Computed example of a mutant assay.
Amino acid sequence: MTADLLPLDPDELLTTTRSVRKRLDLERPVPLEIVKEALEVALQAPTGSNSQTWHWIVLTDPEIKRKVADLYAKSFAAYSANQPRHDDTARRVASSAQYLADTMAQVPVLVIGAIYSGGELPAGNQAGLWGSLLPGAWSLQLALRARGLGSAWTTLHLVYEKEVAEILGIPANIHQGVLLPVAYYTGTDFKPAGRKPLDDILHINGW
């Protein structure tokens, strides 16, 4: 099966690929072949020394998804209790995140991106490790979006990484880095998000 690609130019794809939560279609099945097709694209992302030590765990079984979703919801509850909601934007994000935590088990596909770590995570700056996984995860989100599928970047399940690893049989020398709920989405009016002005964060030839 080959998915029809949306007519998006590169800039539109990059600026309108949003974290989709409330607009995930929980009823429409997602063909595994479409996810695999998007993963084939994601595998072209860079990895350090071309090591390609990433692994992708795709969950479609309802009971397995439920177990992972329960741990995610438990982690989210603790996280949410300590988050400020001072303005409308923060409240909208909180409502969206709560919805995802409540419905995670119903999302058709969950994808966990993981990477070989050799055992314990390295001390100090870990950019060399995660830089070999996270670009692939973002490429996966872009490839999914180009095929009419939404996703959301989540990491709260990592509070219970060991428990998730036990559920899924992930070896001890593999560390998880991201969880992507994946579904078709409702509506098409995705727009660029508000961001800080470039000049506020841009440094030329030094800080």
Rank of each mutant, 00 (worst) to 15 (best):
88 D>W: 10
133 L>N: 01
143 A>Y: 00
169 G>M: 04
142 L>G: 09
60 T>D: 11
129 L>H: 08
103 T>H: 15
149 L>G: 09
52 Q>K: 12
43 L>P: 00
53 T>K: 15
151 S>A: 08
52 Q>E: 14
130 W>R: 07
119 G>L: 10
151 S>R: 07
106 Q>C: 07
66 R>Q: 15
153 W>C: 02
110 L>H: 01
60 T>A: 14
168 L>C: 06
65 K>V: 02
53 T>Q: 15
110 L>W: 00
95 S>G: 15
122 P>E: 07
72 Y>T: 06
62 P>D: 03
94 A>M: 13
109 V>C: 09
164 V>W: 00
109 V>F: 03
82 N>V: 13
80 S>F: 09
83 Q>A: 13
41 V>D: 15
131 G>L: 04
173 N>T: 07
130 W>G: 04
120 E>Y: 11
114 A>M: 12
143 A>N: 02
125 N>E: 11
171 P>Y: 07
101 A>P: 02
87 D>R: 02
80 S>I: 01
48 G>H: 09
44 Q>H: 14
98 Q>R: 15
90 A>K: 13
51 S>V: 10
135 P>R: 09
162 K>Y: 08
51 S>L: 13
42 A>H: 08
155 T>R: 12
173 N>C: 06
54 W>V: 03
81 A>D: 14
62 P>F: 02
136 G>Q: 08
167 I>P: 02
105 A>R: 02
151 S>N: 05
71 L>V: 01
122 P>K: 09
141 Q>W: 04
157 H>A: 04
146 A>D: 08
88 D>G: 14
113 G>H: 09
41 V>W: 10
45 A>V: 10
59 L>P: 01
138 W>G: 08
89 T>I: 11
152 A>N: 08
155 T>G: 12
130 W>A: 05
133 L>F: 04
56 W>N: 06
94 A>C: 10
139 S>H: 15
47 T>H: 05
88 D>E: 14
130 W>S: 05
80 S>L: 08
148 G>A: 12
154 T>A: 06
88 D>Y: 09
61 D>C: 07
83 Q>V: 13
58 V>I: 15
69 A>T: 05
117 S>C: 07
166 E>I: 09
118 G>F: 07
152 A>Y: 04
140 L>H: 06
142 L>E: 10
117 S>H: 07
70 D>W: 03
55 H>L: 09
173 N>W: 10
56 W>Y: 13
113 G>E: 05
116 Y>P: 03
143 A>K: 00
167 I>F: 08
142 L>F: 14
125 N>W: 09
174 I>H: 11
171 P>V: 03
87 D>K: 07
169 G>T: 05
104 M>E: 02
124 G>Y: 06
170 I>W: 01
67 K>N: 06
85 R>F: 04
172 A>S: 13
160 Y>I: 04
128 G>V: 07
152 A>W: 02
54 W>E: 11
148 G>N: 13
160 Y>E: 04
48 G>V: 11
50 N>T: 05
173 N>Y: 11
126 Q>S: 12
65 K>R: 14
155 T>P: 04
115 I>E: 01
163 E>S: 09
70 D>E: 15
